[in-house]
């Protein structure tokens, strides 16, 4: 067992974990942060995307011990009093249907916009390539990211 210290959604946690424990399982099963979900076992789908020290990562491809000392933001910590503009834009543009990919998709989109505040459609599509959605055909996800970039949904 390894001792780790991680800040998740603004709250600091000290835990002992198996070295093989995935960050996503640490979040879900130790901390109850079940807003972040698992969609595959090959890091293709991106459903588990969170932010680690300000950058998006797939939490199925990070060990909890690798996140030691890190600052993690999940979908549950994204809203700061009110919804993040990307969350609001996903609702406004119908950028989700079943919603399973949505936490990861939103976290990836927030990171995309942090790096490129005014992306073209192609840049959005390529920027979200690592996150799969089976419901929407992506068109309304692209629109949501564009809306958020333009100043967001009211």
């Amino acid at each position: 067992m390894v001792k780790i210290s991680i800040t998740v959604d603004g709250e600091r946690h000290e835990d002992e974990v198996e070295p093989r424990l995935l960050l996503v399982h640490y979040l879900r099963e130790r901390l109850g942060k079940v807003g972040t979900v698992v969609g595959c076992d090959t890091s293709n789908c991106g459903a588990c995307t969170v932010h680690l020290d300000g950058n998006s990562v797939k939490a199925c491809s990070v060990l909890a011990v690798q996140a030691d000392g890190g600052d993690v933001t999940t979908i549950e910590g994204l809203a700061n009093g009110e919804w993040h503009p990307v969350q609001a834009a996903f609702k406004e543009c119908h950028g989700l249907q079943c919603g399973y990919c949505t936490p990861g998709m939103i976290m990836a989109a927030v990171d995309l916009l942090a790096n490129n505040p005014a992306p073209s459609e192609d840049e959005i599509r390529e920027g979200l390539e690592g996150n799969l959605c089976r419901c929407t055909g992506y068109q309304n996800i692209v629109k949501a990211v564009q809306l958020a970039a333009e100043g967001g949904a009211r």
Binding site: W83, G99, T102
Partner: peptide, 19 residues
């Protein structure tokens, strides 16, 4: 009409079976 379902889904307050 914007979906009533979405508030839960965009904030991670979900109840998937694995949750």
């Amino acid at each position: 009409l914007r979906r009533k379902e979405d508030a839960r889904l965009v904030t991670g307050r979900t109840s998937w079976t694995d949750n």
